[in-house]
Write a protein that binds this DNA or RNA. Structure first.
Lengths: 193, 193
DNA sequence: ATTAATAATTAGACTGTTCTGTTTAATTTG
DNA sequence: CAAATTAAACAGAACAGTCTAATTATTAAT
């Protein structure tokens, strides 16, 4: 028999709350209230708010990477179509969320990436992990002559990554997916052979 | 003779501090300390922290729009080269800043754009203002057959805008302009005819 | 198997600091 | 002298984190 609470439940609450409300805008008490655990238990599991946030980032970063790997493994489409359908799926998820949260790792990276070194480094590490999932798919697409070869797979992966997050961030204030859809259309028209 | 302090000095301090450290991470006391004014004077000029931040956003948003307009007016390059050199200039400025702050309006839009409506709306308004500076230049480039015509000037403006901010945000955690430079190269190769 | 000892977890009151914003009085300007 | 501004003490709430005690789970001994 385990104890009453477990870390993962608290991390999941942290994920949702941080993603929607940011880091400095969220107090520990909000995490406690949402997860129903008392303060003593929280500080038994986590050293500090910063340590907690780092574990939240790591949990989401790794689970998102698994999701990406699984998506591309299971996809029966060609590389470029597979990539496009991946972004379309993420965009659908964001629409269902009413464009409220965006990506936790990107939000954290922007808000505290330069002020809290550990959190910035964690965010960057997961970005690199995700890019390393994209690059081999792009490589395949290039070898199949679906995707332009003027740039390396990693360069194009960064290009997709940056463009997508730029477009995603626009949805936060426009509350519309219009330009995110256009981003997808333009990007995949431009990188195809 | 005016009084001892004026709003613009305080707004400039707010610009620098908010840009580098965010909104919720910055207390009024930090603004007071940096600008050397007492609390009473601050609340004489501004209704609240939120009101202050909104005026900071508006001042920077408008001044950046003027800077853009002036840049393109004075540029002797062709439209597409003019656009590219504009982004190169902004990238240089960001490098000189050691990738520490990024764009105030974008940062605010990301951190509080969805939680503090007034600030989100202000950020979005300035984004639209900037896009409306870019679009006519893109239009000219299309008419000169320098730029692809498959997408409208506004669509391409959003594409540049989103991609640039995505690439810019990457510099915050990588502390390197490598992929920002690659973004510039890829983007302008892809949108040229 | 039961019990005793130990370790981990739960619980929430409490601390000291920082937060935004208020208030009242002094000072400066037109 | 009247209005605007300056000045800083003050208030109340929220903040991250600590502390002591209680309960619960695990391990060791019998």
């Amino acid at each position: 028999m385990g104890y009453k609470y477990n870390k993962e439940d608290i991390l999941n609450v942290g994920y949702e709350v941080f993603r929607k409300n940011g880091y400095h805008n969220v107090g520990i008490n909000e995490i406690l209230k949402e997860s129903g655990i008392p303060k003593g238990s929280f500080y038994n599991f986590f050293e500090s708010k910063e340590d907690f946030a780092q574990q939240v980032i790591n949990q989401y970063g790794l689970s998102n990477q698994s999701l990406m790997e699984k998506f591309f493994e299971e996809s029966s489409l060609t590389p470029i179509e597979s990539l496009k359908s991946f972004y379309a799926m993420v965009m659908d998820m964001n629409e269902q969320d009413n464009y409220a949260g965006g990506c936790l790792v990107n939000n954290m990276s922007m808000e505290v990436g330069r002020n809290i070194d550990n959190l910035g480094a964690a965010a960057n590490q997961h970005f690199i992990g995700w890019l390393n999932v994209l690059a081999p798919i792009i490589d395949k697409g290039q070898k199949l002559e679906e995707i332009i070869t003027a740039y390396s797979p990693m360069e194009l992966a960064e290009y997709l990554h940056a463009g997508f997050y730029g477009a995603l961030s626009r949805t936060k204030v426009t509350r519309s997916r219009v330009y995110m859809d256009i981003w997808l259309d333009i990007t995949f028209n431009l990188i195809k052979t």
